[in-house]
Design a protein around this nucleic acid. Sequence first.
DNA 1: GGTGACGTTGACGTTAACGTCAACTGGTTA
DNA 2: TAACCAGTTGACGTTAACGTCAACGTCACC
Lengths: 151, 151
Amino acid sequence: MKAGAENAASKTYSITQLSEEFSVTPRAIRFYEDRGLLHPRREGQTRIYSQRDWVRLLLILRGKRVGFSLAELREILDLYDVGDQQTEQIRRTLVMARNKMVSLERQRQDIDQTMSELTVACTYFEKLLEERGIDPRAPVAASKRKKVSAA
Amino acid sequence: MKAGAENAASKTYSITQLSEEFSVTPRAIRFYEDRGLLHPRREGQTRIYSQRDWVRLLLILRGKRVGFSLAELREILDLYDVGDQQTEQIRRTLVMARNKMVSLERQRQDIDQTMSELTVACTYFEKLLEERGIDPRAPVAASKRKKVSAA
DNA sequence: GGTGACGTTGACGTTAACGTCAACTGGTTA
DNA sequence: TAACCAGTTGACGTTAACGTCAACGTCACC
């Protein structure tokens, strides 16, 4: 119970491990910390990320994909952190969360609309290509090609 | 068939009409034109927007909401414009559109996830507020208020 | 003929979210 | 001991999508 293994089975990560797992640059991860979204512990100088940090990063990235700003994400994550927030702050965040849900609802409608329009568009584009005698499923032509043995 | 009314029943819009209808600034609309997304006709110096422009703006704004960049939107709208595009350009756009559909599919999953998490979060926040004896449904306290005649 | 309302063209400013160095600090391996 | 990582801290650069002026044009009217 001394060397090596920490007391709990708490897996930790280095910054590059995280960056590879989530396909983001270390720079971005440090940036999120700078903006108060992550608080990894330090071992000497280097950052050590816990499971909790892992989850936070997951939430951050997903949040970004659905249009949250880093500031908004921070507000939300902050509230999950400690409970001794100021009442007004909690209310502010609650309002923000509700608003966000409304806009997400709309976003989903937008996505559905756009998807169906893109489907139509793709069909149209494919028709355009077929009219020119080109297989729309063919891989993108890489600059110059050598008449790929036309069966 | 001469004065005033144009031959067709084609409604037109001024830039401020459009901007009000869609809740964007004239500056933004001009910017979209600068980026090649809109091509209003000119009457002297001022811009005149047609029905077609109206639709385009609708598509632009929705596209933006689901994460398209202006450059991507331009690519797509361009293809709907004229048919004499270069084959390679059509294929590029087709590929882009297909990729976009994949990412939209994922975005919708993200939205669903986030929605359910936000629901949980809101419940949590509300509990926090109730613990402090505060009505979570109450309107946001606007600095100072005058006891708005409850009844 | 002045005074708005509405429109236009530059040109520069701004914000978010990183990218891109450069210079430095340990730890380990050859 | 030198070279080589992985990591760190500034500090400045970059891109997208506008915002914010300033200076000007042009009608309509009063």
